[in-house]
Simulated scan of single mutants.
Amino acid sequence: MIRSNEIGATILRVFLGITFFVHGLAKFQGGIANTAGFFESLGFPGFSAYVVALIELIGGIALILGIGTRIVSILFVLILAVATVKVKLAAGFLGNGQMAGYELDLALLVISLYLAAINKSFLALDNLLFRSKDA
């Protein structure tokens, strides 16, 4: 039987997956070398831009399908936490007029934490691949 919280989790999972997929795709379409340069300006190695973009792209698809939801969500938490602290925190919650604030990053982080903590959501391949004993 489908519970209403599973439907809500599915909506959040698909939304988060689409959001990260689009962000990962934009990094490649906008020139991943530019993103690598930005990462280097923050003190990260340039190759980390490729890692983050691939996690966003592949992780987004995985969340849409409901594969590896907990692992992908934890990776998204890490990405969002670093992005918030290293880039957005100085701009404040709502931004400073020159840069967006960290309100969206924080919302996506909370959704990611929720998805990492829950047992399952509706229409997720994880439910078929990893059937729980109470199902």
Rank of each mutant, 00 (worst) to 15 (best):
V77F: 13
L94V: 12
L94I: 13
L78E: 04
G31D: 13
G46L: 04
N34A: 14
T69L: 06
G31E: 13
Y50Q: 11
L78I: 15
F47L: 09
G66D: 07
F76L: 09
F44Q: 06
I79E: 05
G30W: 07
E56K: 04
F76R: 00
V85G: 00
N96P: 10
A53F: 01
G60W: 00
L25V: 13
G31M: 11
F47D: 04
G31S: 13
A83D: 07
T35A: 14
F93V: 11
K86L: 06
A49H: 03
P45K: 10
K27Y: 05
I64H: 00
E56P: 01
V22Q: 10
V52Q: 06
L80A: 02
G37K: 11
G31V: 13
F28G: 08
I18G: 03
V82C: 06
T84W: 07
T35H: 00
Y50P: 01
F47Y: 15
P45V: 12
L94K: 05
A81L: 14
F38R: 09
V87Y: 01
F38N: 11
L54S: 14
G92I: 12
A62P: 04
I55D: 01
A36E: 04
G24H: 03
I67V: 14
A26R: 14
I18N: 04
L63H: 05
F47C: 08
A49Y: 02
A62S: 12
Q29V: 09
V77P: 02
T19K: 01
L78F: 15
V72L: 08
A81F: 14
A83R: 03
A49E: 06
A53T: 08
I32S: 12
G31R: 13
V52K: 06
I61D: 01
G24E: 07
L54A: 15
G60I: 03
G92Q: 09
I71H: 03
F47K: 11
L89N: 05
V51T: 14
K86F: 05
L75D: 00
Y50I: 15
A53S: 15
T69F: 07
F44H: 12
V51E: 05
I58H: 02
G66A: 10
F21K: 01
G92A: 13
A62N: 08
L65R: 09
L57D: 03
N96H: 09
I64N: 02
T84L: 12
I55H: 02
A53D: 08
G24F: 07
I58F: 14
V51R: 09
A53V: 09
G60N: 06
A33E: 15
V77M: 15
V87P: 04
N34P: 00
N34T: 13
V51I: 15
S73V: 04
I71S: 06
I67S: 02
L57G: 04
A91N: 12
G24Y: 12
F20W: 03
S48Q: 12
K86G: 02
G60A: 08
T69Q: 12
F20L: 11
V82M: 10
G66H: 09
F28T: 07
N34V: 12
L75I: 05
F76M: 02
G46I: 06
I67H: 01
G59R: 00
P45N: 10
P45T: 11
V82D: 03
L80F: 10
E40W: 05
A36Y: 04
I58Y: 00
V72C: 06
F28M: 12
H23F: 04
F39T: 08
Y50D: 11
A91M: 09
Q29K: 12
I61P: 02
A36G: 12
V22Y: 03
E56N: 04
K88V: 01
S73H: 02
